[in-house]
Each structure stands twice: as C-alpha cells, then as structure tokens.
Simulated scan of single mutants.
Amino acid sequence: MRDIAALTHLCPPPQDSPRPVDWAGVEAVLGVRLPEDYKRLATVYGPGVFSGYIHVYHPRGHTEFADLTGPVPGRLRAQLQRDYDQGTHPVPYDPRDLLAVGGTDNGEHLFWITDPRDAPDAWRIAVNEARGPRWFTFDGTLTAFLTSVLSGETAVPAFPKDLLEQARGFTPSLPVLSPPPDTRPRPPVASDTVRRWARANGYDVPDRGRVAAGIREAWERANPA
C-alpha cells in the first residue's frame, strides 16, 4: 500500500473512478494469478500512460497494443522465444517466465519475471532495450518500479535521460473511435488477378475454377479498397 500511496502522490490518478475489473475472468484468460499491487494500480488508474512515456497494459486497454489480455503479450513472448532458441539476441531469462505488462514511447517493453509462478507478489520487473541487447532488472513490484523511476531513485539505462524533466503525471487513455464501415460495393476483381497475388504470396491455387473463399478474403485484406 505504501508504494501505491507514493505513486498517487507523484502522479495523481483520474478523478473519475475506472470501471471495476473482473479479475477472476482476467486471470482465467491469462492462466495465471496476478500481483495484488498491479490489481490496485489498474483499479486506481485505469488505462493510460505515466509521465507521457510509460504505458502500463490494462485488462480494458483501448487498443490491442495496450490490452493485457490482448495478443501483444503472446507475440512478444514468441519473439523472445525465437531469439532465445536461435541465439539471435541475448535474453537473460527463460521467455516462458516473461509476461509483458507495459511499454514505452521509445519501444522498450516491461515484463513481469513470473518466477515463482505461484507467488505473483514476489515477481520482479525486467525492461529490454528497444534497439539493442541490454536488459535491466528491478527487484520489486511494478508499482514500486514506477514509483522509483518517476521519483528519480532508479534510472533505467534505456530510458531517456531527460525523462524526469517532463511533467510527472498520469494521462488516461481515451477510447479509440472506429471509422464507420465502408458500405460501398466493391467492384469485382478478376480471378486471375487474385491467383497471381496468391501464388506470389505462397498460396497453392488451381489454374482454373473457383478461387477458394479464404484466399479471396486474404487478397481483400491485403488490398483494401
């Protein structure tokens, strides 16, 4: 509780209380229990960004890039696993023990080190460099990490040196409004055009006959009107 109090002093949360989170449902989706400090953090602040730089993933993130239960954590873990297996870039932890919990405007990622898996309140924080091999480890919770960094007590080498020169604060994320769907009819496209595109992109298509619906849909996604 001390860390969340210190963080709210540094970065006051929104006046409007965020909607409650179904934590049991979130943990069921992720297949793991989450740290209590993170639940308090997400409940107090909701989706948003700290000091205009550090984005913390939230179960109700307004885009897939900020959604804790969205596809990004899985994609990052898969990418790290490839690097780990192939030796492409040094990964200091088993990627299976890393769960992405945030990112920055510069492209760094924040991870929980989920070891021990059944003791989430003991998880530490790891930060990887956006365009380099360096990693930084913080021996504490996510809330303690944010408090320590934004108070100037901890300096993450990959973060901008002038980070604390910016106004400290928290900015809630706003829902992303999707444009209305385009209901205009799409002009027909010759099957030969789709076939040429499909072959160039590795699809096996016959020389004649009907192009499979899945291939035509893939062509439409790759060639929006």
Rank of each mutant, 00 (worst) to 15 (best):
W135A: 10
T43E: 12
T43F: 02
A158R: 06
F111W: 14
G61S: 07
L76W: 04
G140N: 04
G152H: 03
L110R: 01
H55K: 14
L80M: 09
G132K: 07
Q81P: 00
Y45A: 11
A66L: 11
V127R: 07
Q86S: 14
E36H: 06
L98C: 00
P90H: 15
G107F: 13
I113A: 06
Y57I: 01
R82K: 10
G107D: 09
V72W: 14
A122V: 03
P35I: 00
G46T: 02
V127A: 12
G132C: 04
R40K: 12
D105E: 13
P59A: 07
D97Q: 12
L41T: 08
V156N: 06
P71C: 09
F136E: 02
G74P: 12
G107T: 06
G52K: 06
P92T: 03
Y57C: 09
R134A: 11
F50E: 06
R33N: 06
W123R: 03
E64Q: 15
G48Q: 07
I113P: 02
V49H: 04
A158E: 13
G103K: 04
G102I: 00
F136V: 07
E36L: 12
P73A: 04
T141M: 08
V44N: 00
G74A: 11
D121L: 11
E64T: 13
W135Y: 13
G87E: 04
V72T: 15
D94V: 07
V72I: 15
P133I: 01
R82E: 15
V49P: 03
D67G: 03
F50I: 04
L142R: 01
P71H: 03
H109F: 07
T63A: 14
G48K: 15
G102A: 07
T147S: 05
G103A: 13
V91E: 09
T154V: 15
V49D: 05
L98A: 02
E64N: 15
L80R: 12
R124W: 01
D105W: 01
P47N: 11
P47W: 02
D67F: 04
A130R: 13
T147L: 11
T88G: 08
D139Y: 12
E129C: 05
L68F: 09
A130G: 03
A144N: 00
V44R: 12
D115E: 13
P133G: 08
L150G: 09
Q81R: 15
T154G: 06
P35Y: 10
S51W: 07
T154D: 08
R60V: 02
S151T: 10
P95N: 08
T114N: 12
G61W: 02
L99Y: 13
T143M: 02
P116A: 13
F136Q: 05
V149K: 14
S51P: 07
T104N: 01
H62V: 14
R131T: 12
G140E: 08
D97W: 08
R77I: 09
R60D: 11
F145T: 08
H55V: 11
S148M: 00
S148Q: 14
Q81T: 14
G87S: 10
T141C: 08
G103N: 12
Q79P: 02
R82M: 13
A144V: 05
F138P: 04
L110T: 02
D115F: 10
H89I: 10
H55G: 03
R117V: 13
L146Y: 03
D83M: 11
G152A: 03
